[in-house]
């Protein structure tokens, strides 16, 4: 057997080692090539996937924005309904209370007012009798004279008619206020019916009468009325009166707050073919432009916390627009605040 020379053996080993190394490198290279190709494809797919996902995310964002707007609107609707229910409930309770009080006062006041006529007559008769006595007995005895001096007969004769007149005026005023309260609350007229809007305005002004008068800080508010000819309008009388009350109250508050020197409120009405229009304008500072669009939002108020509920104008808007299919507009053209109510005649 021939022995392989050591050098040749070494070379064979080296060859074998190189061959192995070569095979290993080839394997690694083939794998790397596959990896590279695959990574390239994977990257393309990744780009496509991410691009589509971004597109979907954008669409989703838009959909969410839309949904958010819908929810915001729904929230406003819920708030409006809540405020309407709350106020309707409160007003209903107040209406019942006012109607009850008005009813209870009405009878005794009628009793007083009715009897005042007789009291006047009796008083005049008694004063005539006294005059007759004084004519027939110009020199009364000392006892009668003492009594005449004691009661200051001459002053009494002069003042008593004035007292009676004052009492009649007061009783008449109470009768008017009671009638206005009943008209205003209209608990007996909750149904939709034909009413005279001027009566509603007048009743409201009677109720607000004390607030129109001068006070230590404010001059008296002059109310000018330019009533046109209005036919009877079909509506919920109590609710319409409430709108008048809200707008007039706000006007009075604004005039007093601004301490206007010659405060005034103009109320005008007119009618065209299909609608009645009531314009209530004051000469106060008006509503700033940046909040004009919010004045009909529920819970929006410019009054200090605790003074305003922020529901008055929102409720008025609902009553006019939703309940009566009319329009309630704010007119920024004038120097003060002007509200225009359009009510359809039918």
């Amino acid at each position: 057997m021939t022995e392989v020379p050591p050098k040749e053996k070494e070379l064979t080993e080296q060859l074998k080692s190189l061959d192995k190394e070569n095979r290993k490198l080839k394997k690694t290279l083939a794998r790397q090539e596959r990896n590279l190709e695959r990574l390239h494809q994977s990257r393309q797919m990744s780009e496509s996937l991410l691009s589509r996902a971004v597109q979907e995310a954008q669409q989703s964002e838009q959909a969410l924005q839309l949904r958010s707007q819908e929810l915001e609107k729904a929230l406003n609707d819920v708030r409006a309904i809540q405020s309407r229910l709350l106020t309707a409930d409160k007003m209903s309770a107040l209406g019942v209370l006012v109607a009850g009080v008005a009813h209870e006062i009405n009878n005794p006041v009628s009793f007083i007012y009715g009897n005042l006529e007789y009291a006047q007559q009796y008083m005049e008769d008694l004063l005539t009798l006294v005059s007759v006595y004084q004519t027939c007995y110009p020199k009364p005895n000392p006892e009668v004279k003492d009594c005449m001096d004691g009661i200051e007969l001459e002053f009494l004769k002069d003042d008593l008619p004035k007292v009676m007149s004052s009492m009649r005026m007061g009783a008449k005023r109470i009768k008017e206020i009671v009638l206005s309260l009943r008209t205003f609350s209209r608990t007996d007229e909750a149904e939709y019916k034909q009413i005279d809007l001027h009566t509603g305005l007048e009743s409201t002004l009677v109720i607000l009468g004390h607030r129109l008068k001068a006070s230590a800080d404010n001059a008296e508010i002059q109310v000018t009325k330019s009533y046109g000819e209005l036919p009877q309008v079909a509506c919920y009388a109590g609710q319409i009166n409430q709108v008048f009350m809200n707008i007039l109250s706000n006007a009075i508050d604004a005039l007093k707050e601004a301490k206007i020197e010659e405060p005034k409120i103009d109320i005008a009405t007119h009618c065209d073919n299909h609608r009645a229009t009531i314009t209530i304008a004051d000469n106060g500072p008006g509503i700033p432009a940046n909040i004009q669009e919010k004045i009909f939002d529920p819970f929006f108020s410019t009054k200090p916390v605790g003074k305003g509920t922020g529901l008055g104008m929102a409720l008025s808007y609902q009553i006019i627009v939703e309940k009566h299919h009319g329009q309630l507009l704010y007119d920024a053209a004038g120097p003060g605040a002007t509200f225009i109510i359009h009510l359809p005649l039918k």
Partner: peptide, 9 residues
């Protein structure tokens, strides 16, 4: 829709 015309991986 997401991966384009690439074969699925």
């Amino acid at each position: 829709e997401y991966t384009g015309q690439q074969p699925i991986y």
